[in-house]
């Protein structure tokens, strides 16, 4: 269903984040993407919905080529792909309901979205999703009034509100405690199984991933180095993914690793961080 061919990304800083990644994900498969910080996991999923522009290679979703799309066509492509973030990325000053409904933005026109005039069906769906994630009673609360786990649940509802074919999940549990992490992972996997969605989950916690997913792909220095079932992950393969990587130089920092605290837990080459850096010079 999703097909990546020779996908490569080099940042303006010259760092090669992805180096010819090939990947195929059938519908209904839950895939965990593991790898050291800066291996290109965030870049990879952002290249799929084009939040990050790959320099070469193609992305095919259900036979439609996403690379090269612009304007309205890109919007139509994006609305088929839900996304869940590590930092939850709720718009904190909007209410829970508005955040969930914003998943429909790809479907409705500007004026209706401005006046918050959503279809009755959309509202019904939003209520069902909120009920499903256990937050229906909170729909009037503002985003910043929720706890981390609750925010992530709203994030999940927002992504599913898009009625996506594919779900991209970026470190969903990195900011949560172990118990909440398990609950969130279970919720994501259950919901996706119900709707037969393909999912790509970036995750650091290998043990947690093994318990929930169908397939594990290991990424190191922008290349796929492992692809198999969770139970095929041995110590050797883990060494292949994490061990031999020189932790002091991130893949995206490339050879010139002098670029600030390399090997830091926060992925220095992460596109989000790049954006953030640009915003705070």
């Amino acid at each position: 269903m999703l097909e990546l061919k020779q996908l490569s990304k080099r940042y303006a800083t010259g760092d090669l984040a992805l180096n010819g990644v090939d990947l195929e994900v059938p519908a209904g498969q839950v895939l965990a993407l593991i790898g050291p910080s800066g291996a290109g996991k965030s870049t990879l999923i952002r290249c799929i919905n084009r939040l990050v522009e790959p320099i070469s290679g193609t992305v095919m979703l259900d036979g439609e080529k996403l690379s090269g799309l612009r304007g309205g066509k890109l919007r139509l492509a994006r609305r088929q792909i839900g996304m869940i973030f590590q930092s939850y990325a709720l718009v904190e000053r909007l209410s829970v309901m508005e955040n969930v409904l914003s998943g429909r933005l790809g479907y409705i026109g500007f004026w209706r979205s401005l006046l918050r005039k959503y279809d009755s069906a959309d509202i019904k769906q939003a209520c069902e999703l909120l009920d499903r994630v256990g937050l229906l009673s909170m729909l009037d609360k503002r985003g910043d009034a929720l706890s981390g786990g609750q925010k992530q649940r709203v994030g999940i509802a927002r992504a599913l509100m898009q009625q996506p074919k594919l779900l991209l999940v970026d470190e969903p549990t990195a900011s949560l405690d172990p118990k909440t992490s398990r609950q969130i992972m279970r919720l994501i996997v259950e919901l996706c199984r119900e709707q037969n969605l393909a999912v790509i989950i970036n995750i650091h916690d290998v043990a947690l991933a093994q318990q929930f997913v169908d397939r594990v792909v290991g990424l190191a220095a922008g290349e796929v180095v492992f692809d198999g079932r969770p139970d095929e992950l041995t110590e050797e393969t883990l060494t292949l993914i994490y061990g031999e990587e020189d932790w002091s130089t991130d893949a995206e920092d490339g050879e010139h690793g002098e670029d600030e605290e390399s090997g830091d837990e926060s992925e220095t080459g992460d596109p989000l961080n790049n954006i953030a850096k640009g915003a705070h010079p």
Binding site: S95, M97, E98, Y118, S120, I123, K124, C127, L139
Partner: peptide
């Protein structure tokens, strides 16, 4: 109450 339910259709207003 921003969420109102009348004979099986739901309506929601921001305020």
């Amino acid at each position: 109450m921003p969420l109102t339910e009348t004979n099986n259709t739901v309506a929601w207003q921001r305020r």
